[in-house]
């Protein structure tokens, strides 16, 4: 069992390594994508500086806290898109019958699919996340917690994308729906939960689990709480298991389009 997990992890790392090498074929474009993504994220600092000029606290947080929230969002998004970029375009593979080449591989189909592409600009997101932490709230313990939470957050984001993407096994043309649901996750991630009220706040910890991706981790980074930490970990395991279950349940309904394709 342990050897199998080790082998699977090795395959994932190799897959990501080759994806990145492919992305780096054109160095200039690669570097531009990474640096422009960092600039893109940094632009939102202006938004928050303006908002904090109007009110000294927003949703119970100060500027530094919101920046760490942004760092967590960028980090989780970046890590998810570096390692599991294809999870976010799952409907396209399902609808157009592009899963065939993955079905014949000896390793996990789901993991092979989702690790088969990498977004180069997402590397910029990860770097930006760490830069933000360093500037706005650095300490060694925060660095460790930040790293832990961007890993867990990336897993939650990916699992969520797999679940909503797998809807395509049952619902025809659900591409837009899953894209929208993924966008909702990203949209809510960059605003503090304090501005939302009762029902919405409940939804952010259940149906759209942004709460476990960034809100709860931010609270733990600001005021450490072991139980809350274990809560995030338990949720991550739960949603990952659910993603596997939903994907393989849906895979039974998959029909090939006999599309001839090559994975390069």
């Amino acid at each position: 069992m342990l050897t199998e997990v080790k082998n699977q992890l090795h395959v994932i790392l190799l897959s990501v390594k080759y994806n990145i090498m492919r992305e780096m074929t054109n160095r200039v474009t690669f570097l531009m994508n990474v640096s422009f993504m960092m600039l893109n994220n940094a632009a939102f600092i202006i938004q928050w500086m303006l908002l904090f000029r109007l009110k000294s606290d927003i949703g119970g947080y100060g500027l530094n806290d919101v920046m760490v929230l942004w760092g967590l969002s960028a980090g989780t998004f970046g890590l998810a898109h570096v390692f599991f970029h294809r999870a976010f375009s799952l409907p396209d593979l399902i609808i157009h019958g592009k899963l065939d080449s993955f079905l014949v591989q000896p390793k996990s189909v789901l993991l092979s699919v989702i690790t088969s592409a990498t977004s180069s600009s997402a590397i910029g997101d990860i770097i930006y996340g760490y830069m933000i932490l360093t500037i706005f709230n650095f300490s060694f313990s925060n660095l460790l917690l930040f790293t832990l939470f961007i890993i867990l957050g990336a897993l939650i984001l990916t699992a969520y994308a797999v679940i909503v993407g797998s809807l395509s096994f049952w619902i025809l043309r659900s591409e837009m729906l899953s894209e929208n649901l993924n966008n909702i996750m990203v949209n809510f991630q960059t605003y503090p939960d304090g501005i939302f009220k009762n029902v919405i706040r409940f939804l952010l910890y259940t149906l759209v689990p942004v709460g476990f991706v960034v809100y709860q981790p931010l609270k733990i980074i600001l005021h450490f709480n072991l139980m809350a930490c274990l809560g995030v970990l338990a949720f991550t395991i739960g949603i990952c298991l659910l993603a596997f279950f939903v994907f393989y349940r849906g895979l039974r309904r998959y029909t090939s389009s006999s599309l001839m394709s090559a994975r390069i």
Partner: peptide, 26 residues
Amino acid sequence: MNIALGFISFFMMVFVFINLWNYIYS
């Protein structure tokens, strides 16, 4: 139908801003 599904993102974005401005305009 595709356009209508795009309303979800639009609505969510507007909804976030409504909450944000409601908070700022206490």
